[in-house]
Amino acid sequence: MPKIDLDTVPAPKGSGYPAPFDAPCAMRIRRRLGDAGGLRDFGINLMHLPSGGWSSQRHWHTYEDEFVYVIGGELVLVEDGGETILRAGDCAAFPRTAAMGIT
């Protein structure tokens, strides 16, 4: 398995959201590690967020699971049931069918 050199992975700032929805994500930096490793069925992103920044607008995936693992710092996870603080070492998983009410 080839090692991914993080220094060679593009690290664009911002998002593809249209204005004004892009503002909360304007300072995020995302490295698409899955793409860099040639993965086609599983995406992995290394996201750096400044204080107060968002990783994304609220969303869900119909055909993809999503997993969040916090490497450092602290973040607020916003869900229907409220807000949860995640700190370094914490993780959260979202099966693709959960948001759609499908079992």
Rank of each mutant, 00 (worst) to 15 (best):
P2K: 09
K3R: 14
K3I: 00
I4P: 00
I4S: 01
L6P: 07
L6S: 12
D7T: 12
D7E: 13
D7M: 12
D7L: 12
T8K: 03
P10L: 00
P10T: 13
A11C: 05
K13I: 15
G14D: 12
G16F: 09
Y17H: 05
Y17G: 01
Y17K: 04
A19H: 07
F21C: 05
D22R: 07
D22P: 03
A23G: 03
A23N: 14
A23T: 13
P24S: 07
C25E: 13
C25W: 03
M27C: 06
M27I: 06
R28H: 15
R28D: 08
I29M: 07
I29G: 06
R30L: 14
R30H: 04
R31Y: 06
R31Q: 15
R32T: 14
G34L: 06
G34V: 06
D35E: 15
D35L: 14
D35Y: 13
D35W: 13
G38L: 02
L39V: 11
R40T: 14
R40K: 15
D41E: 15
F42H: 04
G43H: 02
G43W: 01
G43C: 04
I44K: 07
I44H: 04
N45K: 07
L46G: 07
M47H: 12
M47Q: 09
H48K: 05
L49P: 00
P50H: 09
P50L: 06
P50I: 00
S51I: 15
S51P: 15
S51W: 06
G52C: 00
G53F: 05
W54M: 03
W54R: 01
S55V: 12
R58A: 14
H59P: 02
W60P: 00
W60A: 14
W60N: 05
H61I: 11
T62H: 06
T62S: 09
T62A: 06
E64F: 04
E64K: 07
D65G: 08
E66A: 07
F67K: 05
V68A: 12
V68K: 01
V68F: 10
Y69A: 05
V70F: 02
V70E: 01
V70Q: 02
G72H: 11
G72R: 11
G73S: 10
G73M: 12
L75Y: 04
V76H: 02
V76Q: 01
V76S: 11
V76L: 14
V76D: 11
L77F: 02
E79A: 10
D80R: 10
G81L: 10
G81T: 11
G82A: 02
G82T: 04
G82Y: 06
T84P: 06
I85C: 10
L86S: 12
L86W: 11
R87F: 00
A88Y: 01
A88Q: 08
G89R: 01
D90L: 03
D90S: 12
C91P: 02
C91I: 04
A92S: 03
A92C: 10
A92Y: 07
A93M: 11
A93Q: 02
F94S: 05
F94I: 07
F94L: 05
P95W: 01
P95E: 10
P95L: 13
R96A: 11
R96T: 06
R96V: 09
R96I: 09
T97M: 12
A98C: 03
A99Y: 05
A99G: 14
A99M: 11
M100V: 09
M100R: 11
I102R: 09
T103P: 07
